[in-house]
Design a protein around this nucleic acid. Structure first.
Lengths: 224, 224
DNA sequence: ACGAAAATGTCAGCGCGATGACATGATGGG
DNA sequence: CCCATCATGTCATCGCGCTGACATTTTCGT
C-alpha cells in the first residue's frame, strides 16, 4: 500500500524519462510518506511559517493565497500530484503564502529530515525532483509573461486555458478574480463577454470551456 | 584557469552549505565550460529556439524579453552569476523569451550533453543545481505576488528594491516600465513622485536609491 | 422543505494608466 | 567637438477597471 503511494508520487514528481526510479528508490520513499486528511476550508499552513517538510496533494485541491479580504490574491491552486513546501525548505525560508483546502482533501507528507536524506543519498530522486522544480519554474515564468502588459481579456483567456481540467474550471469567480489580481465585477464582465461569443459557459462556481481554440486565438493575436 | 572559472560557478550556482562540491566535481565542471563574449546589444538567443545548453553570466547583464515595440515586456535581467537555459533543456521546451546583452558581456556555456552527464553522474552537482532552480522559483513566485492586485506605486517600489545593486538600478526607464508591463510615462510619474519624497534620485539611465526603508514601508503598508 | 450562505449579474461614477506627441537634456562615436 | 542617438520630462484626451452597492439565483445543511 505504501509502495503504491510511492509509485504514484513517482509518476507525479518530475519527468519519468530523464530519471526512472528503481524499486529501491520507491521503498525508501514509501518508508517516509505520511497521510493527512483535510476538511473543506481547513488550513494546511499559514503564511510566514517554516515548512516542516514537503506536501504532495493526493485528492482535492489546495489554494495558496496572500493577503485577505478585498486584497486577497491567489498565487496558485494545487491540484492532485502537485508538490509544495520543498522550495522553502531547500532555501530555509518561510512560506510566503497561506494554504487552505478548497475541497475535502488528502495530502501526503514527507518530513524535512527524511526529504533531506532522500536528496543526499539518491541521485535518481534528486534528478527527478530537479525536473519537478523546473516544471514549476517554467509555469511561474509563463504566469509572469501572462501578467505583464496584457489586457484583462488576454489574462483571463490564458487563466482559463491554464487552469482548465478536462475543459472545466471548478472555481468561483471570486477566486478567479483573485488569481489575476482584479475585482470580481471586472472579471464577470469579461466572462459574460466570452459567453456571448460562445467561447465558454458560465455555471455556478464553474466555467466550462466551449471553444478552446477561440480562447487561444485571443492570446496569439498579441503574443506579448 | 578553467578550474578558477569552475570554482566561481560553484560559488554562484545554488547554496554551498547544502552540498559542497569536491575538487573532483570542479574538475569535471571545468572540463566542459566554454567562454563566449557578447557585444552590447548582441543577441544571445531568440525566443522559440531550443537551448543548446546552459549559460552562466560572467560579466555584464543579459535582458530576457518577450514581444517587441510597445508590447515588449522584460521578464528578467540576468546579472553576473545568473544561470539560464537549463530549465528549458530539462523540460525539452523552447526558450519562451529572447536574450540580448545589455552591456558588453561574457557568458560561460555548458553544452546540453555535458550538462546531462554532470547531472546523471554527480549527486553533489545535481543537488546544488536543485537549490539554484529553487532560488529562481522563489524569486519568480515573489514576482507574481508583487504583480497581483498591487498599485503601480507598490509594484515600482518592489521592482527598485529587487533590482538594485548597491543601491543603484542601472536601467533606463523604458526597460523598467517593460518590467512591470506599463508605459513609460506612467512609470516616470511614479519615479518623479518618489524623487519628490526623497526616496530615490533619478539619473540618466539609472536610479539611485536614497531611502531603502522608505520604499520598503510603501510595501509593508499593504502586504497584499 | 426551508432558510442561511454563497455565488452570480449588474450598474453609475470615478480615478488611474494608456496613448501619442513633443520638447529638452545627456551621451558617445567619428 | 559635433551631431545622431538615446533618455527624460510633460501634457491632454480617452478608456478600462475599481468601488461599493444591490438584486437575483444556486447550493447545501438542518
Amino acid at each position: 500500500m505504501a509502495i503504491r503511494q510511492a509509485a504514484w508520487v513517482a509518476r507525479c514528481v518530475g519527468r519519468g524519462e530523464s530519471s526512472p526510479l528503481s524499486p529501491d528508490d520507491l521503498t525508501a520513499l514509501a518508508a517516509f510518506l505520511r497521510t493527512r486528511a483535510l476538511a473543506r476550508g481547513e488550513l494546511l499552513f499559514p503564511a510566514g511559517s517554516a515548512p516542516p517538510g514537503v506536501w504532495i496533494i493526493q485528492h482535492g485541491r489546495v489554494e495558496l493565497s496572500v493577503g485577505a479580504g478585498r486584497r486577497r490574491s491567489v498565487v496558485h491552486v494545487l491540484q492532485p500530484g502537485d508538490v509544495d513546501g520543498d522550495i522553502q525548505h531547500l532555501l530555509d525560508m518561510p512560506l510566503p503564502y497561506t494554504a487552505h483546502a478548497l475541497d475535502e482533501a488528502t495530502v501526503l507528507f514527507l518530513a524535512a529530515p527524511d526529504f533531506e536524506q532522500l536528496l543526499g543519498q539518491r541521485l535518481t530522486i534528486t534528478r527527478r525532483w530537479l525536473s519537478s522544480v523546473a516544471e514549476r519554474l517554467a509555469a511561474s515564468q509563463h504566469r509572469v509573461i501572462g501578467l505583464l502588459g496584457r489586457s484583462l481579456t488576454e489574462q483571463v483567456a490564458q487563466l482559463l486555458l491554464d487552469e482548465a481540467v478536462v475543459d472545466q474550471v471548478l472555481l468561483p469567480q471570486r477566486t478567479l478574480a483573485a488569481m489575476v489580481g482584479v475585482q470580481r465585477p471586472s472579471l464577470n464582465k469579461v466572462l459574460k463577454e466570452f459567453e456571448r461569443q460562445g467561447l465558454i459557459a458560465v455555471r455556478y462556481a464553474a466555467i466550462e470551456l466551449i471553444d478552446r481554440d477561440g480562447l487561444y486565438r485571443l492570446l496569439e493575436a498579441n503574443p506579448a
